[in-house]
Design a binder for these strands. Structure first.
Lengths: 213, 213
DNA sequence: ATAGAATGTGACCCAATGGTCATGTGACCG
DNA sequence: CGGTCACATGACCATTGGGTCACATTCTAT
C-alpha cells in the first residue's frame, strides 16, 4: 500500500497519478506496464514515485483495491437482501450490475480482465489468491439455497455449476462488450435475459414440439 | 517459419530444440519466455538459433503449427462424418476429444491456454486472428443444422450460443484439469456428460415437480 | 532568518532481453 | 592440399526496465 507521502499530496495530483496508472495497466499486461511511462505521463520524478509506492506491485495492488471498492458499490444493492428474489432473478441482477460497472468503468473492467487472464504468471499468484474463494462461496451459498427452495434442479453437480456461473459472469461481459456494444441500454437487458434463459432452460428442443419455455 | 538450416539439423537435435522451447512457452507467457534460456537448455549457440528461426515469434508460430496439427488428429475422427450424430452427442465427442488431447499433451494445452488468455497483448493480435473464425464457423454450422433438424431450440440467439459453446469448450477443460484430475478416465466421461446435460436442460427445476430430464 | 524535516529530482545502477556480427570450424570437392 | 560453403560460436550492441541514491528544493516551526 502507498506510503504516507502519497496521501500528503494534493488531491488532484494523487488523482492524476492514479488515472495515468490506470491507463497504463488497462493498456498493457502487468509485465509490460512501465513505470517509466507512468512517471513521464504523470509528470513526476521517478524517484518520487518510490516515495509514494514501495514498487510496481504496490501501486498495482492499490489500484485493485480502488477497483474492488467501486465494484462493491454496484453489487451491494443487489446483495442487500438476496432472499427477496428467486435465484435466476438474483443472478440476472448480479450479471446486470456487473455489466453496468464495466461499461461505466471501462478501464477498471479491462484491468480486472487482464488480471484474471494472467493466471500462470507471477503477478497472478501474488495478487489473486484471496478474492476468488469469496466469490465462489457467495455463488455456492446462493445456489444451495436455490436448490433447497426448489428453484434449481437438485440433481446437478454443485461445484461444477458454481464454477460455470462464475465463469459465465466473465463470459457475458466479454460477449456483450465485444459482440454487442459498450453502451448500457436496452440491448444489455436483452442480452442478460438471453443468458439467463440459457441458464434456465438449456438448448435442447422441447420434445412435445412446442417452444421450450 | 523456420529456415532451411533448421530442417538440415539431425532429427534428435531438432526435437530437443522444440521440446525445450515447448517447455519454455508452457511455463511462461510469451513476453517472459526467454530465448537465452532456450538456447542454454538446448545447448546451442545463440547465433545458431537465429540461423534456424527468424526471431522469437517465428519459433512460437512454428510450435503453434505443431500443436494445431497434433490437435487435428484428435478432432478429425469426430468431425469425419458429423451427420451420424445428433448435435449433443457430437458436441460431447468434440469436448471429450479436446480433453483427451489436453491430458495427453499437457504442454500443448498450456501453451494454447496462455495464448487465448493473452488477448490484449501484441502477440495475440499478431498470431491469433486467423484460427478463431474457423472454429466459430464450425460451431455455427453445426448449430444451424441442429436447429433445422429440431434438436436445438429454434428461439435461441445463434451468435450468442455459438460464442458460449466455444467458450464452454475452454471452461470444461479448465474445470476438469483444475478441479477434477489430469487423468483420462471415467471421471472425464462423467464430467463431460454433466456439462452436456447442463447445455441441454439448463438449471431450472422442472415445474411438474419431478427431476428435470 | 534559520535549521530541520519533508519532498522532488534525474542521472545512475544493474540486470535482462532480443537480436547482430565478426570470427571460427568442419565437411566436402576438385 | 587449398578453397568454398554451411554451420557454429559467443561477445557485443542497443534498448528497456525496475529500482537507488546523492543532491536540490520547498515547507514548516521556532
Amino acid at each position: 500500500m502507498p506510503k504516507e507521502t502519497f496521501f500528503h499530496l494534493p488531491e488532484d495530483k494523487r488523482n492524476l497519478i492514479c488515472q495515468v496508472a490506470l491507463d497504463e495497466f488497462a493498456t498493457h499486461s502487468f509485465d509490460r506496464a512501465s513505470i517509466n511511462r507512468i512517471v513521464a505521463r504523470a509528470g513526476i520524478a521517478k524517484g518520487s514515485f518510490y516515495q509514494y509506492f514501495e514498487n510496481k506491485q504496490d501501486l498495482f495492488r492499490y489500484l485493485l483495491q480502488l477497483i474492488a471498492e467501486e465494484k462493491r458499490n454496484y453489487l451491494a444493492p443487489v446483495l442487500h437482501n438476496p432472499e427477496r428474489h428467486d435465484f435466476f432473478t438474483l443472478l440476472r441482477e448480479l450479471y446486470r450490475a456487473g455489466i453496468q460497472f464495466a461499461v461505466e468503468h471501462r478501464k477498471y473492467a479491462e484491468i480486472g480482465r487482464r488480471l484474471l487472464a494472467s493466471k500462470g504468471t507471477p503477478i497472478y499468484a501474488q495478487v489473486v489468491d484471496e478474492g476468488m474463494p469469496q466469490a465462489y462461496d457467495l455463488f455456492k451459498g446462493l445456489l444451495e439455497k436455490a436448490i433447497a427452495r426448489g428453484e434449481v434442479r437438485a440433481d446437478i453437480d454443485v461445484e461444477m455449476v458454481v464454477y460455470l456461473i462464475a465463469a459465465l459472469n466473465t463470459l457475458l461481459l466479454e460477449y456483450y462488450t465485444e459482440h454487442v456494444t459498450w453502451d448500457y441500454d436496452e440491448r444489455m437487458f436483452d442480452t442478460v435475459d438471453r443468458f439467463i434463459d440459457f441458464l434456465k432452460h438449456g438448448l435442447k428442443a422441447n420434445e412435445s414440439g412446442g417452444v421450450s419455455p
